[in-house]
Design a protein around this nucleic acid. Structure first.
Lengths: 341, 341
DNA sequence: TTGTAGGCGTTATCAG
DNA sequence: CTGATAACGCCTACAA
């Protein structure tokens, strides 16, 4: 029952399978890839041989032969960020179901790094590339997509092998702000993310939408731009507080900044939610365990990862992907409360 | 100045470089790999050609030819965990400096997944494997190391191509507990991680050490086992509270459980640090931004990643790695306080 | 020191 | 439907 192996490390080649099954290597290859019709008899023989020998195709050789490497590149920004972590998990899980392996490379929010990341991926002969946000120009991305299937999350791009989708950040931003307004808040501060991201801009637009709908004028003193990190959120609060505009509520456009803001407020002796109601965005795990548990806008980052992977698989299959993302939804927890005054 | 390219996608091969430089492909290869001495003249010519053409060796072909793929596999447990995220960042950064690319595969704390992960990595012809903790038996890991350089973090293993190192978890556990004792606490509860990990066991041993040194008897009622997650920490607190043993301090053996515990305490109307002093372990970013900021034991997870990568690079170079990890250190923040009464 | 030839494990292109 | 025969891009004896 033990798998015989001619080579020291137990690696069985397609050729050995062919020999054992009494067919040619090409036939084995055809059966493996469904490239052409093969008689049932040979199919059976080959499959038996594969099982007997414990054969597993060598992705490296496949890659070289112009076939697929069964790997897809993923350009993330900061692999250590909790946000990306959840997305990567979704990607990995979904890809695995189809036998693909993700290859993660960080772009570090830096155009050059990102460009290099993609180059690395291309030289590794990945079958496709998934780009999570990033700074590269649309034109540059589109060009890469000429030679490779590509999925871009967080932008609107068009192309034959190019698929992109975004979460409805604008609606999410509106929901967050609306929630605060419904609770009687009128002076609502806003911490924007890096406005290079469409995501950040859209969340801000949602904020504007909600204010407009409620007939509240935008007060530039209540808006500050930051960078989506905890440290940035904390700093943003300081800047907000240095201006004299008072606010009773704060919408930080992601959970990490909200957490940082919470500490910043604490340092100034402002309590959440007693003195300031706070809303985040993303609903990362940290939001649920924040103190107080953070009201936020749910976007399933994991689902986004799964969606990106699904789309890529479909592209690889030559089809037209469709991604159905869940609608954004407000998750009310304990960091917000009705204004009493 | 534009790089000429004979192939549509601008891919330049070693052969083209050879032709342009007027030498044979093998000479180019030799220069690239330092495999043999080559005359300076040809060296220069080849290097010029490489620059002119923008040649970048194809790792896939290299891998097939039995050379290196310049990629190292990394078996992580849960890629989305903040803990692993930081380690992976360190690995990626360090590897990149040497032109290597990491290939992350999740083991999901599951023996079978982990085995499959390693198999995947092997079939991809990675040059080496880094294993972060995990459930595979020592014997199994050692066997893999027979055919491949391997670095294991969090265990003690020996082998020619095998290097392992651990953070001093025991000392860390002792420091955390000592800190609580120094503040006058005697009834100190402990939330253990999954005791399958050596890490978890060692941290617990540190807890025992400190108690013993202070002449405090171990009370089994104050110890509960959990799983290193936020949810687990929260649950653990419930279980602790259901038993009637009172405690004034709590040492959760990682930050994630500490955060979860904090929420659990909050739900029972117990305040940190007023009612219960809380210490975590790891000093992840979340600890700094927890509310209140969490006292914890600093182990630079990022440094661990860098260390693992450095060791792997050294192994690949045929050398004997040495990793100098920073000593564990207590970071006192605001979740602990002196016992008053 | 250098070049030639063969091979790594698959897939793709042709003939049959 | 099936089998030779070339690639794929690079490395490594072996020979010169």
């Amino acid at each position: 029952m033990k798998a015989p192996s001619s080579r020291p490390d137990g690696v069985v080649t397609l050729e050995q399978v062919a020999e054992q099954a009494g067919v040619s290597p090409s036939t084995v290859s055809r059966i493996l890839n469904g490239t052409a019709a093969v008689s049932q008899a040979k199919k059976d023989a080959v499959q038996a041989a594969i099982r007997d020998l414990g054969f597993r195709p060598n992705p490296v050789a496949r890659g070289l032969a112009g076939g697929r490497t069964l790997s897809v590149g993923v350009v993330t920004q900061i692999i250590s960020s909790p946000f990306y972590g959840e997305a990567l998990l979704g990607i990995e899980r979904e890809l695995e179901r189809a036998g693909y392996v993700p290859m993660f490379v960080s772009g570090n929010w830096h155009e050059d790094d990102e460009r290099k990341a993609i180059e690395t991926l291309l030289s590794r002969r990945v079958d496709g590339v998934i780009v999570l946000a990033g700074r590269l120009s649309d034109a540059e991305l589109t060009k890469v997509a000429d030679s490779l299937p590509m999925v871009v999350v967080g932008r609107q791009l068009e192309g034959p092998q190019l698929f992109s989708f975004s979460f409805d950040n604008r609606l999410g931003g509106r929901l967050a702000t609306q929630h605060l307004i419904e609770q009687g808040h009128r002076r609502i501060a806003f911490i924007a993310g890096d406005l290079i991201h469409e995501d950040a801009v859209e969340r801000q637009n949602g904020y504007f939408d909600a204010l407009a709908a409620a007939g509240i004028a935008v007060d530039p003193n209540l808006i500050v731009q930051s960078d989506f990190t905890e440290a940035g959120g904390m700093l943003a609060v300081s800047r907000l507080l240095e201006r004299d505009g008072r606010f009773t509520a704060l919408f930080a456009s992601n959970d990490q900044m909200a957490i940082g803001a919470c500490l910043g407020l604490h340092r100034r002796n402002l309590r959440v939610p007693d003195d300031v109601s706070l809303v985040g965005f993303d609903d990362l795990i940290m939001a649920r365990y924040a103190m107080p548990p953070l009201t936020t806008v749910r976007q399933s980052v994991y689902e986004i990862g799964v969606g990106a992977a699904t789309a890529m698989l479909e592209l690889l299959r030559g089809g037209k992907p469709k991604v159905q993302l869940p609608e954004p939804a407000l998750v009310a927890r304990e960091s917000t409360r009705r204004m009493t005054r």
